[in-house]
Structure formats: C-alpha cells, structure tokens
Design a protein around this nucleic acid. Structure first.
Length: 253
DNA sequence: GGTGGAATAT
DNA sequence: CATATTCCAC
C-alpha cells in the first residue's frame, strides 16, 4: 500500500498578482518541489479536485482569502488533507501573526527565499512521515505542541583567533545536557531561521500578541540554548521593523 | 532580585 | 545590518 515513488512534493500556489506568481515560480524553480500555479481560488479548488493531480501543500496569498483563514484551512484539510501556507509581502509579521492565529499552517514572506524553501521541504517531509504512521491528518493545536517541528538552533561559532576562516555551523538538539564545562560555545550568534522564527510566531499566536512576553514565549518554544534575552531582542527587532514598515507605508511622495 | 522593554553596543 | 548587551522603571 505504501507507494513511495514521489521524490518530489507538489505545491499549488495561488496568487492573483501575476508578478508575485512569476517570482514564486522562479524561486521554486530549482527546488525539489513540483509547482503548479493558479490565480484564483476557484481554479485552485478545481485543480485540487481533479482526478489526476494531488498536492502536498497549498500556498496562498493572504489577501486572496476573503473568508476566514481558519475556516479555509479547515475545509482544505478536511477535503484534501493538505496544509495551507499563507504568503504575504507587506505588513510583515502583523498580518502573518493574525493569519497564524486564524489557523494557517505557517507563513512565509514574499519573495520566497531559499530559507523558506528549506522550511517548506522540512515541513512537508515531516508531514508525510506523519501520514505514514497515522492515516488521518489530525490537527493538534492543543497546549503544548513542542514536537510538532523539530527544535533546532543553528549557531555560528566564530573563533576569536586572527584567521576568521573557521566558521562552523552546529545544530543543537533536544538532547540532555552533558556534564563537563567547556563545550557550550558562549560567543555564538543565534540565527533566526525560518523554522525558528515560525516557532516564535507560533508561540506568540498561542499566547496572543498582548500577552506575548519573553518568558512565556521562551517556555513555549522550548529551544535549548535559547534565552530570554534572545527572545526579547528578536521581539524588539520585529517591533522595530514593523514600525518602520508602517511609517514607510504612510509616507507620501 | 526578577521582569519586560528601551537604549545602546557590537 | 541583525543580534547582543546594557540600562532602567516596574
């Protein structure tokens, strides 16, 4: 029963902006994803229902969803058993968080970057594994969904020697803390990758924007090596860029 | 003394 | 520039 011929996953991209559509196609061109694009929801639904095609993921621009994102996501999940990803190219995280609060699977900013694609691949792959174990796609958005996405923090260790060629990326897992006292690299900069950022957004969505305090966010994210300071710093960064976007948006000539 | 967040610093 | 660190009012 297990047919695993598909090395490629198939994405259906829905966007009414032709330029965005083209950009997205270009971004995904060299990825392992097979991409199909449409410019309205009805055609998208038709494509999803067509007999010969099956998709693993639906990517849609947030502005195209006139109805509730949560409702849409539920219907798509129920009828097709695939997650819905929401794209946006403005209003940055504000819109994204709203969308996430409404139940979308995840968000990415347009234009899609390589980091986005990596995240999509990771997401789709993990989802596919789940499908094999349990037939039903269950939406488990209860209190603690820590194992939903693999926790990983990528550190860049920069040695303080004269030569700066030594860069090594290291992945921290959820493993227990070892004894000893030397290996935790203290002078490492955290890289806010897509999966990390999405986990961050997820925590905020669960808490609600008003109550999204570093303490709680850190608790929900549950990333080894991540500190409250990191959260606070990122929070400030997000707020800053958000304000900058708003100012830029309300500027005239 | 702990916190969240603004102000700085790297 | 993105992230870290310091500073300060609760």
């Amino acid at each position: 029963m297990e047919v695993e011929n598909s090395e490629k996953f198939r994405i259906l991209v829905v966007d009414d902006d032709i330029n965005c559509l083209l950009t997205t196609i270009a971004s995904l061109k060299n990825s392992k994803f097979e991409v199909m694009t449409v410019n309205n929801i009805k055609v998208a639904l038709g494509g999803l229902r067509s007999s010969g095609l099956s998709f693993d993921l639906l990517l849609i621009d947030v502005h195209m969803l006139k109805i509730d994102v949560f409702q849409f996501q539920q219907e798509i999940a129920k009828e097709f058993g695939i997650p819905v990803g929401v794209m946006s190219n403005d209003e940055k995280d504000n819109t994204l968080m709203k969308g996430h609060d409404n139940g979308a699977a995840f968000f990415i900013m347009k234009p899609i970057t390589q980091d986005n694609i990596n995240y999509l691949w990771e997401y789709t792959t993990s989802l596919q594994k789940k499908k094999h174990t349990s037939k039903q796609v269950v939406q488990e958005f209860e209190e603690n969904t820590n194992e939903k996405i693999l926790n990983e923090v990528i550190y860049i260790e920069s040695s303080s020697s004269v030569s700066e060629r030594d860069k090594c990326t290291r992945k921290y897992d959820k493993a227990e803390n070892e004894d000893g006292s030397s290996q935790p690299s203290k002078k490492s900069r955290i890289v806010w990758t897509d999966s990390l950022h999405n986990k961050f957004l997820e925590a905020i969505a669960i808490l609600g924007v008003k109550k999204a305090y570093p303490r709680k966010i850190l608790e929900l994210m549950d990333i080894p090596g991540l500190s409250k300071k990191h959260i606070a710093s990122h929070l400030q960064f997000i707020a800053t860029t958000e304000i900058q976007d708003q100012e830029r948006k309300s500027m005239e000539q």
